[in-house]
């Protein structure tokens, strides 16, 4: 159980190497081994979406991925969404539209919305509802989140 395995990852553009138990989930390794505590764990059974990260550009629940499965992968966490220290269009839209209150689900929302809009440049409101339905939020009633998705989609479209 305690035998450790070496895993090499690229996280937010940095090459990382960690020694982890085979059973260690990616979320715990990001948080505990790499100190990237922006990725949050709210259910640890794959429903709430708070722990969503990008694995090779695709949104994934880091509570359902063993770190060893991510060997060689490129991971983007919420800390890496806007690497210059500013806010990405999605983060700006979330701020403008009051898409967050307590902030605990927010990293997963930001990452999920970013992943979706990166690959769906022209979504309808119904598309956005569907796209964000895998992330639970208990504070906002989703009104600000959906408004933010709309704003971010429109602005990303206008600037592309």
């Amino acid at each position: 159980m305690n035998d450790r395995t070496r895993v090499r990852l690229t996280v937010n553009g940095h090459a990382e190497q960690v020694e982890v138990e085979p059973r260690a989930i990616l979320a715990d390794v990001l948080r505990d081994n790499l100190g990237l505590t922006g990725t949050h764990l709210a259910c640890e059974h794959g429903v709430c979406g708070a722990c969503t990260v990008l694995i090779d550009g695709e949104a994934a629940r880091s509570c359902l991925v063993f770190a060893v499965q991510a060997e060689g992968a490129s991971i983007t966490t919420v800390e890496g969404i806007a690497p210059d220290g500013g806010l990405s269009p999605v983060q700006e839209a979330m701020r403008d539209c009051h898409g967050l209150q307590c902030g605990f689900c927010t990293p997963g929302i930001v990452v999920s919305m970013t992943a979706y809009l990166n690959t769906h440049p022209n979504p309808s409101d119904a598309d956005l509802k569907e796209a964000m339905s895998g992330n639970l939020c208990r504070c906002t009633g989703y009104q600000g989140i959906l408004a933010a998705a709309r704003q971010a989609a429109d602005r990303m479209n206008a600037s592309s």
Partner: peptide, 20 residues
């Protein structure tokens, strides 16, 4: 409706919750 002071840290993964 000014921008919230809380938002920058929470949106960029720099909130400070007990688990952190």
């Amino acid at each position: 409706a000014v921008h919230r002071k809380e938002d920058r840290r929470l949106l960029t993964g720099h909130g400070q919750y007990v688990a952190d």
